[in-house]
């Protein structure tokens, strides 16, 4: 039978707290010779031995808790990697599936000797593949996959996307999950904001830059109701321009950024929503 270390630890420390209170009360009562049997001396020795044993076992329990915590952290990272591998596989399969269609078109254009059309078609296809899979090199594999998958989603919704990655991020394993959550929430927020707009307005711009101290992430998308809300409102818990009980994403982002000692700025001007996130490099690299 596998022992649940958390349950064991809870039970163990609660028994210890009972023993401590018991010792305290028993000593107090001993001063007034109240409820003390003639075998009190023996009882005290057994009691002392029991407390000693519990203290020794406490070391083992604490060590197991530490190991289990480490294991949980490792599993969390492994689970994240697995999720990203699944996403990568999905993108690969989609391209693999599309490849046959593209080859059919290419063959058709070749047969018809429409070389100019073929050239345009190939340029367009290469551009798509380039943008989705080849250009995303942030230095963090998980973020690359996340941005690639978001690009796929954005394209499937007919949204134009522009991105500029001018930084190579160095991020410790501990902070990868936080960075992915931040990016995912900001991108989801942008996608949600533009997907219902008219076709010409549907555009998202992503930029990853760096200065001497910080990594700077900028996401810009159109927002028609900029005058109705102050920038601070967007970071409040439960705030959503859709008014239907959502609005947790940017609040979560704000919490994570604060934990990383970074800053988040929002600008809403000229029907545009711009979110700028600055994360100190040393915090992101911190093990």
């Amino acid at each position: 039978m596998r022992i649940n270390i958390y349950k064991t630890a809870i039970l163990f420390f609660i028994i210890q707290s009972l023993l401590i209170v018991l010792l305290l009360n028993n000593n107090y009562m001993d001063r007034f010779s109240f409820l003390q049997s003639f075998r009190s001396a023996w009882a005290d020795s057994v009691f002392g031995l029991l407390i000693l044993l519990f203290n020794l076992v406490a070391i083992v329990v604490a060590r197991y808790l530490y190991i289990t915590g480490e294991e949980a952290e490792r599993l969390k990272n492994a689970s994240l990697k697995h999720a990203h591998m699944v996403e990568q596989h999905r993108i690969y399969r989609q391209h693999h599936h599309d490849l046959k269609n593209h080859l059919t078109v290419i063959m058709g254009l070749l047969n018809l000797e429409k070389y100019n059309n073929l050239k345009d078609y190939l340029e367009s296809y290469l551009h798509t593949v380039d943008d989705a899979l080849l250009k995303v090199h942030t230095g963090v594999g998980e973020v690359d996959i996340l941005i690639s998958s978001k690009i796929e989603i954005v394209r499937s919704k007919g949204i134009r996307i522009g991105f500029n990655i001018a930084a190579r991020i160095e991020c410790s394993k501990k902070n990868i999950l936080n960075l992915v959550i931040i990016m995912a929430n900001v991108l989801d927020n942008a996608i949600e904001a533009v997907q219902d707009l008219d076709q010409p307005l549907r555009k998202i711009s992503i930029s990853i830059e760096q200065d001497q101290l910080d990594y700077i992430f900028i996401v810009i998308n159109p927002l028609l109701s900029t005058g109705l809300f102050t920038p601070e409102q967007f970071l409040l818990e439960g705030f959503s321009t859709k008014h239907d009980g959502r609005g947790q994403g940017l609040f979560i982002v704000k919490g994570l950024i604060e934990r990383l000692e970074g800053s988040v700025y929002i600008e809403t001007r000229n029907d545009q929503f711009k979110i700028t996130i600055e994360i100190p490099k040393h915090k992101l690299q911190e093990e």
């Binding site: 009360n25 009562m29 409820l35 003390q36 049997s37 009190s40 009882a43 009691f47």
Partner: peptide, 9 residues
């Protein structure tokens, strides 16, 4: 019955 605080608890 027990007459002992520890045992009683």
């Amino acid at each position: 019955t027990t007459g002992s605080f520890v045992l009683n608890i």
